[in-house]
Design a protein around this nucleic acid. Structure first.
Lengths: 226, 226
DNA sequence: CGATCCCTTAACATTAAGTTAATATGATTA
DNA sequence: TAATCATATTAACTTAATGTTAAGGGATCG
């Protein structure tokens, strides 16, 4: 059973949502919808879709703001964002402004064309998954699911690995406990307060005490400055 | 006498299939045909052709998707894939996207030119057709469909063989259960959760416990570090 | 048209991973 | 310095994922 790609549609027009949902579902995508930017951002956190189709003009929170918000969520780093814009719409907002969108799609669009565009976008991204990050003698390899410290393999269980990967995705940046929860555990899952601490503890035990720093009252960060 | 090269033609236009089939047969190739991507993928699994000519624009499953699928089948690792594209067709889908195709051929093409192109492709590949992989005393031979451990033949059933071949195709890399499903079973087939485990078990029984490692919560990997 | 071998499933066992709870430590502030 | 708050630490506990076995259906091959 292959994993279905999860697609989140965000548009304020019911008709368009229905049309797109129908066509994408038919193609085997796992489709979710939201009626405005705010809802879109929240659903995105929850669902962690592979691709988000974002209408630019929307009430509550427009597509650009939403995109901004989404791009701030580390867990959604690999999510593809594509803007939907009506032909002839005012481009001044998005022109020259790099929000981190991967594509712009102009409405009206034939469902078949949209489907093939989406497939193209998903395909393009599927290759670049073997990321390796190395910081100060410590590296992680997502594909091999391994951490290396000065060339020595360290085997980490899933949660620990993902926690480390998250912290290393933005070195020196502090991750709040909330950010860690939504990045590693996902929004809906509720676990106790000390769970993160325990995982941090186990990580420090394995990689040494110098990499992960506590920022009291705020969260944790990965730091190279010992 | 050299084995006849098997060529699979995949195109939705009968006329083109007939024309190509006629010309390639005349040249001594072993020619098979399919009318769309889906059929093409299935026939490819069955026949294991040396070369596949894939039309890009097709109903059911287009050439790019088909190529993707084929590239996921370990047994077809050494198969050459060439795309057929109509001149002036929309290239946006394939441009900048590395699907693992070995060549692009533009229609219309003169049969003689096509034949010589195909011969060239087959020749180019004939050198690197080392169908054998050996890692740490364990090797598999795709052509003979055999595993060898320290020179001793181990007969593996199809699924076990393909599972092992898949894991060995990227040693040390972790394959998720999903990846294993789509690599060995294919996209549509749905089997129960414990099926992979059982095959892993049987493999370990036959090749020893040291080669395949479990990464709990993630998947399995082939590892040489015992 | 048996006989055999594969593949899958289901039930249960096992183990690693993840979580919690209890307690300790240390920092901050009144 | 006592009180309070946040994080650290440990071990016990729970859960989720995989391991294991055997049995049955279905394909395959002589």
């Amino acid at each position: 059973m292959a994993k279905q790609a999860k697609v989140l549609l965000v548009d304020d027009e019911e008709d368009i949502l229905d049309l797109l949902e129908y066509n994408l579902s038919k193609e085997g995508f796992d489709v979710y919808t939201a009626g405005n930017g705010l809802e879109g951002v929240n659903k995105a956190k929850e669902i962690k879709p592979d691709l988000i189709l974002l209408d630019v003009m929307m009430p509550e929170m427009d597509g650009i703001e939403a995109c901004d918000e989404i791009r701030k969520i580390p867990a959604l780093n690999d999510t593809i964002i594509a803007f939907l814009t009506a032909r002839g719409e005012d481009y001044s907002q998005i022109a020259g402004y790099d929000v981190g969108a991967d594509d712009y799609i102009t409405k009206p669009i034939k469902p078949k064309v949209l489907v093939s565009k989406i497939k193209g976008l998903l395909r393009r991204n599927s290759g670049k998954s073997s990321q390796e990050v190395t910081i100060d003698g410590l590296s992680i390899d997502r594909e091999k699911y391994l951490a290396l410290k000065d060339g020595v393999e360290i085997i980490l269980p899933k949660k620990e690995f993902e926690l480390l990967a998250l912290l290393m995705s933005k070195p020196e940046s502090v991750f709040t406990r909330e950010a860690i929860f939504s990045g590693v555990w996902g929004h809906d899952i509720v676990v106790g307060d000390r769970t993160i601490d325990v995982h941090i503890r186990k990580l420090r035990e394995k990689i040494g005490d110098n990499f992960i720093k506590t920022v009291k009252g705020v969260g944790y960060k990965f730091s190279t400055k010992h």
